[in-house]
Design a protein around this nucleic acid. Structure first.
Length: 352
DNA sequence: AATGCGGGGCC
DNA sequence: GGCCCAGCATT
């Protein structure tokens, strides 16, 4: 292996910077693969500040991987509620079961084997392998893309196949294989705290003299990222039925799309807004209640729930019926179901 | 090679 | 309103 001086300088500065600037995060006091894995899954596309409370909740509820494996999926999803990207929770649960059943409760200890686990891709396998087992594999996350693209002046789009390949190669060259555990965490921490997306602190940056972006006034234009698709607008009409026993109906989302396995009220989706008369006409049949049900709109203005690629224009319709629901659940039990934030917010404000 | 998948914080 | 966040799976 050959190291150029530039790469030695880079990794050494990252290591030195990390030594004096690293935060005391809850998963930094352990090398337990279970805890590292849990933290890494939670932090995928998620800020440390948002993920941290969930890490504590999960460690408290499931101290060992066996505890997680033995839990009901619904309990796992309920604890995950609000963190988003719910496939992570389902894959987390599935992987816990595999680790227990196939690996006897001990996580695999190589990048290659870790990569076979559900929800564990190149980044996460590298993170676990390097942090827990000192395997010399570089992590490439959003922070690393930003730091490398700026320091080395690389303008390949970080979300293009070619860019992903090139940055991975560069990451291999730039890393400190003998101190991979600290180097990997260090470059991410550096990206999170010093070389930030907006207004990086270049004045105090220990890498600024060798930083191509900084020295060519290109900080604001690196990294390069291809634009994503436009947001799609959807119109959700939730039918919140209330029967004479204060019961309502909920259902689990199945199939493809958002919020798989989470609960919601019976949903009437349309390509544009619908009026009270239309809802009044169709609600009884959808819900299986008498025609004389009374329908009124709960939220005067649309609630616009924003996801990355979708804006959900939502109305909650209260359907009051004298019918006693066969499959109804007490309104008081609604807080027990794993639901999307859109539904959780409604439940919190809907008090009869 | 593209697209879908959450929610929140910051500007 | 746009961007980004310790990315992954699917097509």
């Amino acid at each position: 292996m050959h190291f150029t001086e530039k790469e030695m300088v880079f990794s050494n500065i990252i290591l030195a910077w990390y030594g004096t600037n690293k935060r005391a995060l809850p998963w930094r006091n352990t090398l337990d693969p279970y805890r590292i894995w849990l933290s890494e899954i939670m932090l995928q596309q998620t800020r440390v500040a948002q993920g941290t409370p969930y890490y504590h909740k999960f460690i408290s509820a499931f101290p060992k991987v066996e505890d997680l494996a033995n839990a009901d999926e619904e309990v796992v999803l309920k604890l995950w509620q609000g963190l988003g990207y719910y496939s992570r929770a389902r894959n987390l649960h599935a992987t816990a079961k595999i680790v227990v059943e196939k690996y006897g409760g001990t996580f695999p200890n190589t990048y290659k084997e870790l990569l076979t686990l559900k929800g564990v891709g190149d980044y996460t396998a590298s993170a676990i392998a390097s942090i827990c087992f000192n395997e010399a594999v570089p992590v490439v996350d959003g922070n690393v893309y930003r730091v490398l693209s700026r320091y080395y002046g690389i303008d390949l789009p970080i979300n293009s196949p070619e860019g992903i390949k090139e940055f991975k190669k560069l990451a291999v060259k730039a890393m400190a294989p003998k101190n991979i555990r600290d180097y990997n965490q260090g470059i991410m921490e550096f990206g999170a705290l010093q070389c930030t997306p907006q207004k990086p602190d270049c004045q105090t940056c220990p890498l600024n003299s060798g930083c191509i972006a900084y020295n060519n006034d290109r900080i604001g234009s690196l990294p390069v990222k291809l634009k994503k698709a436009k947001v799609k607008h959807r119109y959700f009409n939730y039918l919140v039925v209330v029967d004479a026993n204060n019961q309502t109906l909920v259902q689990q989302r199945t199939g493809n799309g958002i919020w798989q396995q989470l609960y919601e009220f019976p949903l009437l989706e349309s390509d544009r807004e619908v009026a009270l008369t239309e809802v009044s006409k169709s609600a009884p049949e959808i819900l299986g209640v008498k025609e004389d049900a009374e329908v009124y709109l709960f939220n005067d203005k649309n609630i616009v729930h924003k996801l990355s690629h979708q804006h959900l224009h939502t109305k909650f319709w209260i359907v009051s019926t004298t019918t006693i629901l066969e499959n109804g659940v007490p309104l008081s039990t609604l807080p027990e179901y794993p639901v999307p934030v859109l539904i959780a917010d409604f439940i919190n404000t809907f008090k009869i």
